[in-house]
Structure formats: C-alpha cells, structure tokens
Amino acid sequence: MSYQSVFKADLFQGQTFIVTGGGSGIGRCTAHELAALGAKVALVGRKSEKVETVKAEILEDGGIASAHVCDIREEEPVKATVKAIIAEHGGLNGLVNNAGGQFPSPLAGINQKGWETVVRTNLTGGFLMAREAYNQALSKTGGSIVNIVADMWGGMPGMGHSGAARAGMVNFTQTAAVEWAAAGVRVNAVAPGWIASSGMDNYPEHMRQWIRSLGDNVPLKRMGTESEISAAICFLLSPGAAFINGDCLRIDGGASQGGRVWPFPKARNNEPFNGFHRAVTPKVLSED
C-alpha cells in the first residue's frame, strides 16, 4: 500500500521540506504524505530512534527522507541542522513547524521551569526554525512555512502554558507573513482540534475517559484524523495556496465555533478521511 493523498502524485516532485516533530503523530503522517507527493523530507526530532524509524518507513515506501536530531529550543543546533539539511538536499522549499509538547496542569500548579519549557518548545523553537529556514534559504528562493498550533481560542484551561505559546505562534505567523512576503515566502498556521493521534497516549491515566469523550463535543460528533491535518498542511504548502498568507486554518470539526450552548444531535453524512496507510489508532481510543 501507499499513501492515498487527495493531491496529484508529483505535486512536490524534487522539492525539499523540513518537518519538525516528524517522528510521531501528525508530523509522521505529514512527512509520509509529502514524500508520497515526490518531496525530499528532512525529519527533525529530539530522539534519533523516532526519526530514524520514520525515515526507514518512507524509504521502504519508495520515498526520499533524511533524519536529523536537534533540540529546536537551542539556537546553535537549529542553525547547524538547517545548514546540514540544505547541504544534503541541495536547497529548501518549505518548513512544517510541527514539533511541540505540553503537560496537563492548572495555571496555579505550573512552576516557572515548566512554563518556560513549554513556551520554548511551542513558541521559541518554532521561531528559531522559521528564522533559520528564511535566512539560510527561503529569503533567496521563496517558499512556504506552516506552523502547527492548537485550538486555544477562548483560553486553554488545564494547559495555559501551551495556550499562551500557541497564541504567540499565531501572532508570529501573522508578523512573518508580512515581513517575509516580499521575498516570496508565505507563512500560515494550522490549528488542529481533537485529533486521534499518538500524542493522546502520553497523557495520564485519569484523563483517559475524558479523551475518549472528546468527539461528543464536536458538531461532527467525532475526532479528526492525522490525514485530515496533513491534507491541509500540504495544501498550504502547494501552489494552490499561492495567495494565502498570514492565515490560521482551524481543523476541528466546528468545535471552536461557539456551539457550547447548542445541543449536538447524532451526526450523519460525515465520513473521516484517512489516507495514511501506516496510521495507528491511539491505544487510549482502541482499548476497552
């Protein structure tokens, strides 16, 4: 089997894209779709085992990929990693700023170290990667950057550190879109809602039942798939999005649209899209 993308097979033929956090979840799925569309994919992550595994998957499927270990929160390693990727692949056409992470906690229980760690991961790291992609390559050739954020409109209770960082990344997206447009660089963001992805298995036991109920709070009455996020990312990277710049696309089944006082009846005529041939259902959703 191969990735069943909705886009034409040679859409990104010969182009190079960096995908941070490419060793799991949405990043892994996006890397596979980009490779299936002809792109050379540079997987960036903190753990060698994860990015090497995804690299092997892509190579097995007939794609082109490289694996790079880097802590995106550290300036010098980011500079060196982007430089190495450009040298290895002969250029750079775009960046998917997907790496991120957080832990559940009310604001009153977050210490300074925890706050700063999440902000550095979800905001500072994305800035460093985007800046280096722009300075080292895209400012000369043009290209596209897609920043992955989250559904933080109306606050993000229980994860206020991540909500603040993601909101900052949306504002960074808007600013970069203006400053870098003259060089032919478009900068957009994608805000996934509740997506059935491997990250769900990282949360503590007491959150399992809550995670399983998330789909009931979506007007479409289900969670999204990794493929539904990847498709949006690929569109924003594509020539079809040539006049989309500084925007943030919410992919959440309508959950962020103020429906909290509106009852959600049983949904119909709504089938999930899942083109990822290697997709794995999170354990928290597959276990009884």
Rank of each mutant, 00 (worst) to 15 (best):
111 N>H: 10
240 G>P: 05
86 I>W: 11
103 F>P: 05
81 T>C: 10
284 V>D: 11
101 G>W: 03
121 T>E: 01
202 N>R: 08
78 V>W: 10
27 G>I: 00
190 V>A: 13
150 A>N: 10
129 M>E: 00
128 L>A: 01
117 T>Y: 09
213 S>I: 02
33 E>Q: 13
114 G>P: 12
232 A>R: 14
228 E>M: 01
237 L>K: 14
208 R>L: 05
13 Q>A: 11
191 A>D: 07
130 A>D: 03
21 G>H: 14
12 F>K: 07
261 V>A: 15
81 T>K: 12
195 I>H: 12
55 K>M: 06
12 F>S: 14
123 L>D: 02
141 T>R: 03
126 G>E: 03
67 A>G: 09
256 S>M: 13
91 G>W: 06
127 F>L: 12
243 F>T: 13
69 V>S: 00
154 G>D: 15
123 L>N: 03
244 I>D: 04
111 N>R: 08
236 L>Q: 15
154 G>I: 08
263 P>A: 06
130 A>Q: 06
231 A>F: 05
90 G>T: 01
1 M>G: 03
112 Q>L: 15
120 R>Y: 10
99 A>P: 14
285 L>Y: 12
225 T>A: 02
272 P>S: 09
288 D>K: 11
142 G>E: 10
161 H>G: 01
112 Q>I: 13
76 E>I: 08
48 S>A: 13
216 D>A: 15
215 G>P: 01
5 S>N: 04
1 M>V: 08
6 V>A: 15
187 V>N: 04
158 G>T: 07
155 G>Y: 15
266 K>A: 08
240 G>K: 13
60 E>W: 01
238 S>E: 15
